[in-house]
Design a protein around this nucleic acid. Sequence first.
RNA 1: GCGAGUAUCGUCAAGUGGUUAAGACCUCGGAUUGUGGUUCCGAUAUGCAUGGGUUCGAAUCCCAUUACUCGCCCCA
Length: 405
Amino acid sequence: MNIKAPRGTKDILPEEAVSWQNIEKIALELFTSAGVKEIRTPIIEDTNLFERGVGDTTDIVNKEMYTFEKGDRSLTLRPENTAGVVRAYLEHGMFRISPPVKLWYKGPMFRYENPQAGRQRQFHQIGMEIFGEKKPTADAEAISLAVQFLNRLGLNDLTIEINSLGCDECRKKFREKLKFVLKPYLPQLCEDCQTRFEKNPLRILDCKNENCNKIFESISEQKDWNKIDLCPECLDHFNTLKDYLRALDIKYVENPNLVRGLDYYTRTVFEIKSFNLGSQNAVCGGGRYDNLVSLMGGDNTPAVGWAMGVERLNSLLPQKTEELLDYFVVSTDSKEAIKLVNLLRNKGKSAEFDFSGRKFTKQLEKASKVAKKAIILGEDEISNGYLTVKDLSTSEQIKTDINNL
RNA sequence: GCGAGUAUCGUCAAGUGGUUAAGACCUCGGAUUGUGGUUCCGAUAUGCAUGGGUUCGAAUCCCAUUACUCGCCCCA
């Protein structure tokens, strides 16, 4: 067969799936303990949802979406899940639930990008959103949950970067300031920056182009030209958040250049990075998006959220090994074996048996590889109504019956 | 979209123009007809990503294509 998994997609094989199950189990436990409810939204959504929600100046929407036409509608494989969650929040009237409304999700996302280390076309995210709370308490809770999640997975050495993008007013002023300062340098900046200048000047600060960065450093006529001037409310919001983070003993680094690539962020943005990931070093990204819900036609509803890349997360974790079965039934009588295995499973034990009635030694060899104990069910056992249970690590063997297992 | 590298069994690989393409792991079978995890023996690529070309002769050299990997960009 020469059909392979499509470019940028991967099979998660049983060995690796064990780690995924662990990650998902810990997510479920943590979120449940924090009153965060799970939501599962469709993998396909109306294309307009992302154009409006994610923002049509973003790379994600401009060139990375899997979009197809079906009938008279345009559908898109979700490139992220915040827009979908917001859509469901509005569609099901969750604004009537007493706030804050806390939701989490996990699942595949699709982005048509060039695959490389830590970047696939189908990848998976675990994320959460908090709706209806504008106070920095919600930001702190969101960040705290992300940190706790990583800690529970055994990851303690990650860098948390935070920044505030301000509210609409702050950003409007910031955009004007940036454009004013940068205008004389515009012809020298890279092509991307030139288009960003008109479309989304904030993202110029995200530019990785060396030349651009040199130019930015050389600009000195206006002090802190590349820093946003937060209005008193935004400043207070940001300071309070930092105060909460210190109280939670969460170490953070302020990164004034941190501008997330999605248009919907306001005020708080943050990223959690690892140096063990290569160039795709962000495990978690998120922030506040106070305008998104109203942009999608809802009432003004503040919100914060984040998403983690499960593949990236998994690559940081020591791999879990598969657990051994409780029992492997060794028998030349497949019918008796399958009956016994059913009984064991109904008692909550894990058990397997040999399907093809192979030689006794082969069955036992298999048992020693996959199970803690072997149950020998031969002619003697069947006719006399007992079971021989062999502990495969100690070689101890006892006669017993099903009720004692 | 741009740049670089790689492509030999399920997996890891040796092979650098000359007879039937090493080896290891995994799998399967046997030694061993009711006692395994150790050991020993055996089986398993008419084929080296695909298509062309050079040559008496190609896994090996050349070209193209495809896929993968790694960067840039962007992001999780």
